[in-house]
């Protein structure tokens, strides 16, 4: 078994309104920053032991699809690295 850290980024699908990001963007603009757009995302780091990277990725993908992301709202990316 090898120790891996998986990084899962869950973000809203394109076209889904992100009121918190809009509010954050307005606050940055009030502070005088210039920006074109701001998107928010959640990031999770999961430490797991697995036989290989493919097995680690498969397990983390299952975790993401069953809980961490809501398919109605979210897309996600997963990267897996050996610790």
């Amino acid at each position: 078994m090898t120790a891996y850290t998986a990084t899962i980024t869950v973000r809203l699908k394109s076209g889904v309104l992100d009121p918190e990001a809009e509010t954050t963007q307005r606050s940055l603009e009030r502070l005088g920053f210039e920006l074109e757009d701001l998107r928010s995302a959640d990031q999770f780091e999961v430490d797991i032991d697995a036989d290989d990277e493919a097995a680690a990725t498969e397990r983390v993908t299952d975790m993401t699809e069953r809980l961490l992301a809501n398919p109605t709202l979210h897309d996600y990316d997963i990267t897996v690295e050996e610790q």
Binding site: V16, L17, D18, P19, E20, E22, N70, T72
Partner: peptide
């Protein structure tokens, strides 16, 4: 109900935040 797929769609952050 929506999170468990008993019903369709999702309820998420109000437009007003």
């Amino acid at each position: 109900g929506c999170e468990s797929s008993l019903t369709p769609g999702a309820f998420t952050t109000n437009e007003s935040a």
